[in-house]
Design a binder for these strands. Structure first.
Lengths: 228, 228
DNA sequence: ATTGATCTTGAATCCAAATTCAATAATAAT
DNA sequence: ATTATTATTGAATTTGGATTCAAGATCAAT
């Protein structure tokens, strides 16, 4: 009897393969029709197997999607360590590298990024994990706050509010551009690096109340003209 | 024969009343269990009527929810004209008043604000309307950009990108605090006015690359200590 | 080459929820 | 008071899809 959620439900190479094919098929269908339209029979059809096989490997759609998203998040976190390239006090490039990851993820897998937020709404446990992952990244910035602003009068939770609020910069833009494909945002033909730089520059201004160092701007130099 | 989507399906005061009661019931259930868990029988039960009556007034749940959200958005837009209180060049208070509306809406009706974003995912036509409403508000700021920054070198679509990106400030915070009730953000006991001021101050910094005028800060004065 | 396990199929079944509808009650019009 | 219209009920039906399962195919082991 198959305890379908259990990974060991595939006990042979062939089984493992089928499992993977189901997963890949689900990703494909996900990108095509979105999470809310995802149906088991679509996944099995895409994978070229009988409908019944699904339940041999997964108990339900949720557990399959959960597995997909968890793997994606893990990959996301690994990429997150691009920060290591950045020299210690170089805040602008640190922000930029974070945004580069975010932009790339949206560009590569808009369907999955969208799925993450939709799945969060249905599965509190997953939501907690995703949020924890997000918080870990925010905390990287919150932790160094005292060094960045020696004269800061903010309490720890005020720092978190601030970082959290600023982190919203660009979230909606990324969703609109890559997920919803809003023509308004597609019209300006920015490369991913350019977009990341714009967003990093805005974050920098919000964080430091000044412009980023001119020398580090490659694409968004125009933003320096916004002062009075 | 009832063309149920048609508003005239209620042809007597009593009918109109029942319609309204269904709508109110749906809002209540929505706030309680969320859009994805919303069921017709829950709505009718909440309204204290038979299940079948639902289809006398609405063709399906979507059209009921759509009606609720459209009305809410209309109300939202009306409130948006708080701007009129603000004197011409007073950018900080203009931002603040926008944030006050946003914060209040989230505080009053977290379930509906959440529903809006979920409904957008399922109904492209509604999504277009919501986005148009959102864009109208963004455009208020984009339109005055040339006056705010006479030396701006940005093209119109770059201005829109910038305004759009900055408008993300706080969106996630509002969702986390009022919709998800994230303890991390509930722990700091900010009033709605205080939160709005913090967010406005951050937006102001991103927009102008400087701090808001000290005299206009009532609650978030600490933010001035963040400079180097 | 026989055995027992795993893999695969697809039709049959189940299920939750939407939807219909015939019957009854309330209301307005004359 | 009669009639026509609208409002309301709730049991019966339909729907869309998940889930089960008996039966056959494949495979590894001995």
């Amino acid at each position: 009897m198959p305890a379908a959620t259990d990974k060991t439900s595939a006990r042979r190479p062939k089984g493992e393969l089928a499992r993977e094919r189901l997963k890949a098929a689900a990703v494909a269908v996900l990108e095509r029709v979105g999470y809310h339209q995802l149906r088991i029979k679509d996944v099995t059809a895409e994978a070229g197997v009988a409908a019944g096989l699904f339940h041999h490997y997964y108990s339900d759609l949720q557990s399959l999607v959960e597995e997909i998203l968890d793997e994606y998040i893990a990959e996301f976190e690994a990429t997150g360590h691009i920060e290591r390239d950045v020299s210690k006090g170089d805040w602008f490039n640190r922000l930029r590298s974070h945004y580069e990851v975010a932009v790339c993820k949206h560009a590569e897998h808009p369907g999955i990024m969208n799925c993450i937020s939709q799945f969060c709404a249905d599965d509190p446990a997953f939501r907690a994990r995703w949020q924890a992952s997000y918080n870990r990244r925010l905390q990287l910035l919150a932790d160094v706050f005292p060094y960045v602003f020696p004269h800061s009068e903010l309490a720890a939770h005020e720092v978190r509010l601030m970082v959290h609020a600023l982190s919203g910069i660009g979230q909606d833009v990324l969703r609109e551009r890559y997920i919803e494909r809003n023509p308004d945002l597609l019209s300006l033909q920015l490369s991913e690096a350019e977009l990341a730089e714009w967003l990093a520059a805005l974050f920098y201004r919000g964080l430091f109340a000044r412009n980023p160092p001119q020398g580090q701007l490659n694409h968004a130099r125009k933003i320096l003209s916004l002062t009075r």
